[in-house]
Simulated assay, not measured.
Amino acid sequence: MGHLDWLERPELSDAVLIAAFSGWNDAGDAATESAKFLRRRFRSHPVAQVDPEYFYDFASVRPSVRLTEGERHIDWPRPEVRVGELDDGRPLVTMLGVEPRLRWRTFCDVVVETAETLGVSTVVTLGALLTDTHHNAPVNVVGASNNAALNLTMGLRQSTYEGPTGIIGVLNDACHRAGFSSVSFWATVPTYVHNYPSPKAALALAERVAQFLGITLGESELHSAAANYGRQIDELVAGDNTLAQYAQQILEESAAEAVEDFSEMVENPDALMSELEQFLRQQEPD
């Protein structure tokens, strides 16, 4: 596996892999923040890093410079693999990084081979998308799988989405074809606050993963951040008449209408962003 740099190669069995990537699949940073939280919760440590040279355009995803005791270091956008242990003793493998820009099929081959090397049996991918939902409404988390038996057992459904996809969609297909039990969970994030992190959605994803795996999370800093999220966004919206009007418009819609066709939008948030931009253009200046 020439694209993976191993720090150690533990021998695991019946492991769970959780993968999340920042970018198109990660509205409000919810997916990646959820994965980071699960890493901390289950005391994960690094075991490998993906060599970024083959998968990234460094002009669009730039490395960063840091100084440590006066010495200059370059930090590259390297997806990292960590290993921890769930409360029931099962190994937890996580892969977290920036969505790759190049060679997705090869990248997915690297993930699949990593999973096979680390004894993974179940793959869980996380995503978040923008929808017309109010920031004080419960976060809607939808699960989908290509595994008919898993769908029946967990009350999930096979995705019927057709259209553009991100790395999560491609990776799900690769994992399914490789024979893993794979499932994807997606959380909703309000369109009108798309530039703000959503710990509320991140927590909802983590709780859905915990439910799927039959584990508990306990209280954490993510719970506190999620509890404060509504108040912080309330203050933001109150200070902007246009946002306040848009949020009120969403509140006046029925819950059924607010989540209509959700499954078809999971991997294509562009339509909702266009709707928001159209609404903003229609507003008269004060």
Rank of each mutant, 00 (worst) to 15 (best):
R103P: 00
P91N: 12
D75K: 10
L118F: 11
G127T: 02
E116Y: 01
D87P: 10
L126K: 03
P77E: 08
C108I: 06
V110G: 02
V120T: 05
P91M: 13
R101F: 07
T131E: 10
T122D: 10
S121A: 06
R72A: 13
E80V: 15
V120A: 03
T131G: 07
R82G: 03
P79S: 11
D109P: 00
A128Q: 05
L102S: 01
L96N: 08
S121M: 00
G84L: 07
T125W: 00
A115M: 09
W104T: 01
D87K: 09
P91F: 11
L130I: 06
D109V: 10
L118E: 08
G97W: 05
R105W: 05
T125H: 03
R105N: 12
V110L: 13
R105S: 13
W104L: 09
G84P: 01
P79I: 12
V120K: 02
V110K: 01
D109E: 15
E69M: 10
V98K: 10
E80F: 08
L102W: 08
G97S: 10
F107N: 03
E80P: 00
G70Q: 03
G119W: 07
T122Y: 04
V120L: 07
W104R: 06
V83N: 05
L118M: 13
D132P: 02
L130Y: 14
H73A: 11
V110C: 09
R105P: 00
V110I: 09
G89S: 11
V98W: 09
A128T: 06
T131A: 14
V83K: 05
T117F: 03
R90V: 09
E85S: 14
V93I: 13
R101V: 00
F107I: 08
T106K: 14
D88I: 05
L118D: 08
L92F: 07
E71R: 14
C108W: 04
R105H: 13
P79M: 11
D132I: 00
V81G: 13
V98H: 12
T117L: 13
L126F: 09
E99D: 06
P91D: 14
L96R: 13
G119A: 04
D132F: 12
V112A: 14
D132E: 15
L130A: 12
G97E: 06
H73K: 12
H73L: 10
R90I: 11
E80T: 15
D109K: 14
L92T: 04
T106R: 15
E116W: 06
F107Y: 15
A115Q: 06
V81A: 15
E80R: 11
V93T: 04
G97K: 09
L86A: 05
T94G: 12
D132V: 00
C108R: 02
A115C: 08
R72Y: 06
R101M: 05
A128S: 15
E85P: 02
G127R: 03
R105D: 15
V98F: 12
V98L: 08
V81S: 04
V120P: 01
G127M: 04
W76I: 00
T117E: 15
F107K: 06
F107S: 05
P100Y: 04
E69T: 05
R105T: 08
T117Y: 04
E99A: 12
R78W: 01
E99R: 03
R78V: 07
G84V: 02
R90T: 08
L129D: 00
I74E: 12
L92G: 05
V93N: 04
R78P: 01
G84M: 07
G70W: 03
T114I: 15
T114A: 15
R72H: 09
V123N: 01
